[in-house]
Nucleic acid binder design. Structure first.
Length: 422
RNA sequence: GCCCCCGUGGUCGAACGGGCUAUGACGCCGGACUCUCAAUCCGGAAGUUGCGGGUUCGAGUCCCGCCGGGGGUACCA
């Protein structure tokens, strides 16, 4: 029988990173098995629904590359069906009316157990299960009723969700059995913790997929990183493509303990991915990112700048700070230019006649200049870098000057020399 | 309170039903390279596997008891 899983977020806001990791595990499992991955919006709690959340969730999943099968379904659309089942349960004596609401009769002897695909056998004593409300007095089904019913109707074979649902599971299993269906396989994955050790779940603010996107992370790298949060292929493999992840993923290698989100490692991984891109791909991704973020900088220049930043920055989000001097004027920190007026002036003189105005020729000229001034390259180039890029840290100096062009380079050198002389 | 889940260096994880000096990665420290920052390449430090018992020739792996963290205990999801 084919496998079918689902991601069932509630539309209360943006997708946070913990939820996305759960979605990723569902998706990887489905794709690995050649099954289906469905997207279902659990909007029974209308009071907390956020207008644009449904769209945001889909955008985030698409950006990460998690495609779902079939149409998106909404829990609220099943309202009538749920009510019908609840009434049937009342007729069968398995549920009863309670001040306008319908309550499910939980068994009070024995226990309810299941073999969790990541945690092994879990058992709850039935006398701890309270009769739960299936349908509120206003007619809307509750989550613990609607969710398992939808799993049944949708033919969900594996429910892969966060560990906060562990204690809901015995309730849902009893409901599913009461309607004469077979419970799916459950797999409860741990939470993702923030650097503070607190869970990144919906209740504690935290990081959304959108934030990672705006920060300039590369989706395939984020996917790779997320997959490694609680799952591993073996003890050595870190970098895996989307297809490798799909091929290798399995629930039995998902660990039950919570994982702390390590931004340093994500940054490193992201850098690895960006550096591995071909120059053309890198430039295209960079342009796309800057456009998404609203920068209207000249595309040709962005593309020319791409190669000189590729191995210097690990996120596209660092580009504006790192290479922005190519696109807008700068204001060098005078303190950094202190006493450097002679070098800057000399560099200006030297660069006036360099022909062509290209990195190799610029380098030769400036090295000769440093030599003449009896300064180490390190010493001589720093003020030039500051004068032209506005910072002590920049892409390669000679390449930067070439991209900036002779005219603008000379202008900035003059301006800096004037200011430093004051 | 009660029920349930979790616990390997700072972080992520490996160690198939117990067996070589606990494997790898990020980070950190040092070195090489160097126009800054990176990248890259070498090398290093870092774990009494939460604690205490027990079983065993031998335990991160099995048993018992604690401790710590988390989740649930709603006409929230």
């Amino acid at each position: 029988m084919s496998v079918r899983v689902r991601m069932a977020p509630s539309p209360t806001g943006f997708l946070h990173i913990g939820n996305v990791r759960t979605a990723l595990f569902n998706w990887l499992f489905a794709r690995n098995k050649g099954g289906e991955f469905r997207l279902r919006i659990e909007n029974t709690d209308t009071s907390r629904e956020v207008e644009e959340a449904t769209q945001q969730i889909q955008d985030s999943l698409r950006w990460l590359g998690l495609d779902w099968d079939g149409d998106v379904t909404f829990q609220l659309d099943r309202l009538q069906d749920c009510a019908a089942v609840a009434h049937r349960l009342v007729e069968e004596g398995k549920a009863y009316e309670d001040e306008g609401a319908i309550r499910f009769r939980m068994p009070d002897e024995g226990g309810t157990a299941w073999d969790d695909a990541v945690r092994g056998r879990i058992e709850f004593p039935n006398d701890k299960l309270e009769d739960l409300v299936l349908v509120r007095s206003d007619g809307r089904p509750t989550y613990n009723f609607a969710s398992p019913m939808e799993d049944v109707w949708d033919g969900i074979t594996h429910v892969i969700r966060g560990e906060d649902h562990i204690s809901n599971t015995p309730k849902q299993i009893n409901i599913i059995r009461a309607v004469g269906a077979e419970p799916p396989v459950y797999a409860h994955v741990s939470h993702v913790l923030g650097p503070d050790g607190k869970s990144l779940s919906k209740r504690h603010g935290s990081v959304t997929v959108d934030e990672f996107r705006h920060a300039g992370y590369y989706a395939p790298a984020l996917m790779n990183f997320l997959a490694l949060l609680g799952w591993s292929y073996d003890d050595k493999t870190t970098i895996m493509s989307r297809d490798e992840l799909i091929e290798r993923f399995s629930l039995d290698r998902v660990v039950p303990s919570p994982a702390t989100f390590d931004y340093e490692k994500l940054d490193w991984l992201n850098g690895m991915y960006l550096r591995a891109l071909s120059p053309e791909e890198y430039a295209a991704e960079l342009v796309r990112y800057l456009r998404d973020e609203g920068y209207d900088w000249d595309e040709a220049l962005i593309r020319r700048a791409a190669p000189i930043v590729q191995e210097k920055i690990e996120r596209f989000g660092q580009f504006p700070d790192f290479a922005g001097f190519l696109f807008r004027d700068i204001e060098p920190d005078l303190a950094l230019l202190n006493g450097a007026a002679p070098v800057v002036t000399a560099a200006r003189e030297e660069l006036q006649s360099v022909e062509p105005f290209a990195a190799p020729e610029i380098e030769a000229a400036l090295r000769a200049l440093a030599d003449r001034l009896e300064l180490s390259p390190r010493k001589a180039f720093e003020p030039i870098r500051v004068a032209v890029t506005g910072s002590k840290v920049s892409p390669g100096l000679f390449e930067s000057l070439e991209l900036l062009g002779r005219e603008e380079t000379l202008r900035r050198l003059s301006a800096a020399a004037d200011r430093a002389a004051v």
